[in-house]
Design a protein around this nucleic acid. Structure first.
Lengths: 345, 345
DNA sequence: CGCGCCATTGTGAACGCTAACATCGTGCAC
DNA sequence: GTGCACGATGTTAGCGTTCACAATGGCGCG
């Protein structure tokens, strides 16, 4: 049975199927699109022909005439960080459920020129919407200046919720980082700590800024509470170096680290310096990365559900593509209390 | 200046550009494709018209006629594990450099039906190649049975390097996990340990199997060396539980954990049990995840460059798409010695 | 028995692009 | 001066779909 006449020759088209089934190409199209008015035996004949030829529809041809590609573009940051990876996962899973196909572009910097080239590529593909997993501040500017003809959704805790500079509406979805920062800090304050050091993340990250805001807000609600802030990067190295210094120069009773990596570095530094966590100092992290429950000691942290965030981003995008108004209210993070924090005083 | 006559109306086409520039659409096409025989001022006029209209080429129309989509499909596993995420990153980065666009599909199981549906979707998009980041054994079977009309590259340490059941060639790229397992074990043996416990990963993962093979091979080269094997999952939880048991029942002097998560759990368990690492027991991990250098104590581990693996996968795919024969020799992992291992006896 | 309606199917024309070929000058060799 | 090659451009025909509309035929109903 000569399945493919040409083997490597062109893939079978509707016309080929039509010929085998003895119908017109339009009837084949109807069968494929579940059009109601097709006689049952005709449908069967078409399906048989499809099976026999190994026919698959050509989405390019389809997109050309329908002017709908069914493709969504995701711009993601060029690092395998826990958050972005999980978010991408959530987006992809949800996209499939909504009938979209996802193409991704990884970007190593958020310079306007890079962003613009990336988006341009998406637009050539006629994506119906763009999701930017871009937690850095400078990504926003690049995006707002874009003025793409499709909806753009940013995944970040920015407060941008504008129409954008051009035609495209830009929205953002996020986990409420301010609430997370408050949660962490209130937990420490509730344990009796009155001096809570905050190790912040890089200043050009929205999340870092927002956690800082939450920390400060919590401090202000409790009389007598105070705390310093140190700004670092997201790395364990930074936490480690800082921890060593704190141990030398005198550590506060409580530290709120902007992410779990920093907290990990702190834990090691304290351990090496003979400071016992949580007896001598309580530590709270942020993210609840894999393994945080097995740090020494297991880390109290703020969990954010990145996958849910991704799904949320997709839902918002979908609504915007459909021309409806999305609900962009932020997701709420959750405090996970473990052994790295204890009462003070 | 009425930029878009219809604003939301259809995007400008070559014909529109041609009209504005006062040339034929074919000339526009020539300009876009850098055809040499275009007069300089004509080119300028076309470019100006493109700019003015905000024209972008339509890749669907282009793919339709050229029969080349420039799209690659990546199937990835439904988890934000460190390895797969980094690999995806490498693939994407390299894909762009090679002029491909990447669409991803996340799959939560490797059942043949799921795999087949996923690949089917890719084929409708007329992807030119498929990369499967599928470290589990059952993925292989599903893929070999597929017989897709495009090249398939598996990222895994399987030894599959077959033509596949159908028309499509199937190849695999990998990091040499056997070598990695040997590296870890030889390091411990070299330190004088004669009893090396191996905590293996799930038996249906290629990587787990291969590391096990490497461990065993290393043991066999050293007279008097021995070791037991415990099979677990990849989680820190498993490592923790096992560690507690070992501490109770008597631990060997050296443990080679199949990944860093397991090692992390072991470290905590030993610590809680009063066993000092590395004095009482040496621990080696695998992967070198972010933060492994700040575990307590910093973890000796085998680093594999997942991003390079991804790039390698893409290079192989590209060659196959071009009908050439790829070099699929495995990448070599690297031992990173830190503080969790020390001499014995 | 004739009319119209509806279910079923077919026909032709886009969609936006590239490939192949046709056309039109212009310059140069003879 | 004629012929011809070649550079620059235009014309036409698809690529594989879907959409709009036309055509066919059976059936109910007056």
């Amino acid at each position: 049975m000569a399945e493919n006449p040409g083997a490597q020759g062109r893939a079978p088209s509707m016309a080929d199927v039509a010929e085998v089934a003895g119908v017109s190409h339009q009837t084949v199209s109807r069968v494929l699109n579940d059009h109601p008015n097709v006689r049952e035996e005709t449908r069967a004949a078409v399906l048989a022909a499809i099976e026999q030829l190994g026919y698959r529809r050509n989405s390019a041809a389809r997109a050309l005439v329908t002017r709908r590609s069914g493709v969504l573009g995701v711009v993601t940051t060029g690092s395998a960080l826990f958050g972005p990876s999980s978010t991408l996962l959530g987006i992809e899973l949800a996209a499939r459920e909504h009938g979209y196909v996802v193409t991704v572009a990884t970007v190593t910097s958020f310079e306007p020129s890079t962003m613009s080239a990336t988006v341009e590529q998406f637009l050539e593909q006629r994506v119906e919407g763009i999701i930017v997993v871009a937690p850095q501040v400078d990504a926003t500017r690049a995006i707002l200046d874009l003025g793409a003809p499709v909806p753009i959704v940013m995944v970040s805790s920015s407060f941008v919720d504008a129409r954008g500079a051009g035609v495209s509406p830009v929205r953002s979805v996020s986990v409420d980082q301010v609430a997370g920062g408050r949660l962490a800090t209130e937990h420490l304050l509730g344990l009796g700590h009155r001096n809570v050091l905050h190790v912040a993340g890089p200043g050009d990250w929205f999340d870092a800024r927002a956690r800082l805001v939450g920390w400060r807000a919590a401090l202000e609600t409790v009389p007598g509470a105070s705390g310093e802030m140190v700004q670092g990067d997201w790395t364990a190295d930074f936490g480690y170096d800082l921890g060593l210094r704190l141990a030398r120069e005198g550590a506060p009773s409580a530290v709120f680290a902007a992410n779990d990596q920093i907290a990990l570095g702190l834990l090691r530094a304290f351990w090496e310096s003979g400071l016992v966590v949580p007896r001598d100092v309580s530590v709270v992290g942020f993210d609840d990365v894999a393994g945080a429950d097995h740090f020494i000691p297991p880390l109290t942290t703020v969990r954010q559900d990145f996958e849910a965030l991704g799904r949320h981003a997709l839902a918002v995008t979908d609504r915007m593509v459909e021309g409806e108004d999305p609900d962009t209210s932020p997701l709420v993070p959750e405090l996970v209390v473990r052994a790295s924090t204890t009462a003070w005083g």
